[in-house]
């Protein structure tokens, strides 16, 4: 799967959350681009990048219940009517659109009656409408609330949750999570120092065994349910 990450942030170098996410990027199959660092957009190139990607991620801090102005500029310049739907070819059809949004307020603020009074889904509805118009598939949003307050264990978890959001097939089920780790494990074991590789392989074998056990149990259960129906 090819993922394109488009980051909109007016002061990227000063943003600890954006720098953290950049350092967390998966090493393969991900293209990362900062919108504000381009003086003007090479529309043909931008559109070509969109055509090549299977999953497109828009990543930004929430400013006044919307993305920063740089993303809107990109939308206005790159997502031309003809490109998105005008000629009825829908080049973005069936691609996934995911939103990574950072907020200064906590999760509980984003609900009716909360400090912000609206949900993130409501705030992001103009982007969801664009996705619908382009016949794209809208992914559940990946919000990062109050990055500055996260403790180390939460930051460690964020690294992998973010990587999975960028590259793991949907839906985010146990089955898909297991498959993602199965795919990643060989390279992670290879890069371990030689004296740790045996442990790495043992862990991998045990993990795969657990996966098979769960699958076998699920099969047994399906069989029992089938018999109960008879």
């Amino acid at each position: 799967m090819k993922t394109l990450v488009l980051v909109s942030h007016p002061q990227l170098a000063d943003s600890t959350s954006q720098q953290f996410l950049k350092a967390s990027l998966p090493k393969q199959d991900v293209t990362w681009e900062h919108l504000e660092s381009q003086e003007s957009f090479d529309v043909a190139r931008e559109q070509d990048q969109l055509r090549q990607a299977d999953r497109i991620i828009l990543q930004f801090p929430l400013y006044w219940y919307a993305a920063p102005a740089g993303l809107k500029q990109w939308e206005d310049d790159v997502l031309t009517r003809t490109f998105v739907y005008g000629d009825h070819r829908f080049p973005l059809a069936d691609k996934e659109l995911g939103i990574v949004v950072t907020t200064g307020m906590p999760e509980k603020a984003f609900q009716r009656g909360g400090a912000e009074g609206l949900t993130l889904d409501a705030a992001l509805s103009p982007l969801a409408a664009v996705a619908a118009r382009a016949h794209m598939r809208w992914l559940p949003t990946f919000p990062i609330y109050q990055f500055g307050y996260l403790e180390e264990p939460e930051k460690l978890q964020l690294v992998v949750d973010y990587q999975r959001y960028l590259t793991q097939p949907q839906p985010d089920s146990l089955e898909q999570r297991q498959a993602w780790f199965t795919h990643k494990l060989p390279a992670m074991i290879d890069q371990l120092p030689p004296e740790q590789q045996a442990t790495g392989r043992l862990i991998q074998a045990e993990f795969e065994q657990q996966k098979d056990d769960i699958e076998a149990l699920a099969d047994t259960l399906a069989m029992i349910k089938e018999q109960e129906d008879d």
């Binding site: 350092a23 967390s24 460690l156 297991q178 780790f181 769960i214």
Partner: peptide, 26 residues
């Protein structure tokens, strides 16, 4: 590396989830 540590700790969490699911299915 922070990101390497993150990978193995996330795997640890997933293994705990596997264990729970195994119990529930059993």
């Amino acid at each position: 590396q922070f990101t390497d540590r993150a990978f193995w700790l996330a795997l640890d969490k997933l293994v705990a989830e596997q264990d729970r699911r195994n119990d529930q299915l059993q």
